[in-house]
Structure formats: C-alpha cells, structure tokens
Simulated scan of single mutants.
Amino acid sequence: MSISLLRTLILYTAVMAAVRIMGKRQIGELNPSELVITILISDLAAIPMQDLGIPLFAGLVPIVALVALEIIISFAALKSRTFRRLLNGQPAIIIRKGQLDIEKLQQLRLTTDEIIETLRKQNVCSVADVKYGVIEPDGTLTVILKQPQQPVTAEMLGLTPKDTGLPLVVISDGKLVHRSLDLLQLDARDIENRLRNQSIALADVFLMTLDDCGNTFIQRKAGI
C-alpha cells in the first residue's frame, strides 16, 4: 500500500510539473498538439500507477520525452509562421456583414444551431448584428459587432472616468503579501500608514487590494 501511494505521489508530481512546464493556457485554449500530448501524458501516468509490476522509471521517461517534444514544437511554431499555421490552423471568417458564410460552415462542419447558441452566450441577439464572426484556431468564436450595436464607451460620451490599474492582493487574512508590495514598489510601512489613516489594524484585515493608481479595497475580518 505504501509503495502504491508513493508511486502515485511521484507520478502526480511529475504530471503537474509537466503541465506547468508546457504553459498556463487553459484546456479550452490548447492547440491540437498540446491537447494530444496532455492526453498522452495522463494515460502514461495512469499505467504505472495502476500496475505495480511496471517500473516507475518506465512511466516517467515517456512523460519527459513528450514534454521535451512539446517544447521543441512550441519553439518551432514561435520561429516559423508557416509551421504554426500548419500545426494550429488559421482563423476562419464565418459571418460577414450580418450574413453567414454557408460554404465555410460546411467546411468546418458547424451547424446554425451551434452558431446561434454561441452568439447568445455572448449576448448577441441576431446574426444581423454581427459585422464579422471569426472561428479562432482554438475553436472559439470572436464577434465584432456592427457600429450601432457596439457597447457605449466613455470616449463616445466624452467622459474621462477615474483611472484604474491592476489590483494586487497586499493583505490576505491579516498577513502582508510581500510579492505584491515589491511589484507596487511599496513596503510594509506604506501599508501600515494607509491602515492607520482609517483606524484599522493589520491583523483585522481579511483582504486588502491596491493598484498602481492608488485605488484601495479593504474588507475586515468577520465580527470586527
């Protein structure tokens, strides 16, 4: 039992490391080669995990080989546009100026029901509202609306909204997050001064976020 548990932990760690090395993209955004390699890695890890008669090394070697192959393929795709298009495909325009491209839909084997469903998920009521609809290489549908249907922006209204930056967690459950402070080029004293101005103790803060524009959000711990 202990050997089986140890092998499971080792293989789990190896697969997690492999996924981290291959990148941060989500499953829905994997290109075909990444998806195939991810499936193969999971299958290869399951075999020695279930069969104790197979040497652990025999399961780890193919995983390392597949990760190395994926890195080589990714590097080649980065350097060669032709190879990248061959590997991942290219975007396909299926909607032009409010009209479906029937021939392109047939090539991609997409039904009108699938297109309408995807548009609804993007809060688009009608194909007629779409100037261009593009199927990306990862299978997602990108929609560019016609001018009258585009959302109103502050620029259109002649407004200048308050500037905002990327909010970073600087306090989590009463403890400072030093990596966020380094990114904001602040130190613990700066945060303590901000809290002191609002008569709040560091230990009483459940969450505090701060961006590079000075916008702050503070939530105290429950019962305080």
Rank of each mutant, 00 (worst) to 15 (best):
R20L: 15
C125N: 13
F217H: 11
G174T: 04
P32L: 04
D187N: 14
N88L: 08
K162W: 00
Q198W: 09
Q219H: 13
T118Q: 15
S4V: 15
D190P: 00
I27Y: 06
G53A: 01
G139Q: 10
P167D: 02
M49I: 06
K121R: 14
L110T: 08
D163I: 05
A154I: 04
R96Q: 13
G133I: 04
N88M: 08
K97Y: 11
L105H: 06
E29Y: 05
V61E: 03
V15T: 15
V124K: 04
R109A: 10
V130G: 07
Q149W: 15
R120E: 08
G223A: 13
D187M: 06
V61D: 07
G28S: 07
D138W: 09
G139T: 12
G53R: 07
I171M: 04
E117N: 14
I21L: 14
L145Q: 13
L100V: 11
G53K: 06
G214R: 11
A128G: 12
G89S: 09
I115E: 00
K97F: 09
V177E: 12
L5M: 15
L44Y: 03
P32Q: 04
I72H: 05
I54D: 06
V67R: 00
L141T: 07
V177Q: 13
I224D: 09
I224R: 10
E136M: 13
P167V: 05
V152G: 00
T8F: 15
H178G: 01
E136R: 07
A68T: 13
I200F: 06
R7T: 09
I71S: 09
G89P: 03
V127W: 04
E155F: 09
T118R: 14
I21H: 06
G139W: 13
R7V: 04
E70L: 08
L44S: 05
D211V: 05
F217K: 06
L141S: 05
R194G: 03
G89I: 03
L195Q: 01
S199Q: 14
V127L: 11
R84P: 03
I224V: 13
L69T: 13
I93M: 09
K104W: 02
E114G: 07
T216N: 05
S172P: 00
I10E: 02
G98M: 11
T112Y: 07
S80H: 10
L60H: 05
I3L: 14
F75P: 00
D138C: 12
M16R: 09
I135L: 13
I39D: 00
T112F: 10
A17I: 14
A46W: 04
K131D: 15
H178K: 08
I115L: 13
Q26G: 14
G133K: 01
I47V: 14
M22V: 10
G139S: 12
L168A: 03
N197D: 11
I37K: 01
R220C: 03
M208R: 00
P62D: 03
L9H: 10
F206D: 11
L183F: 01
A58V: 13
L181H: 03
V205K: 01
N197W: 06
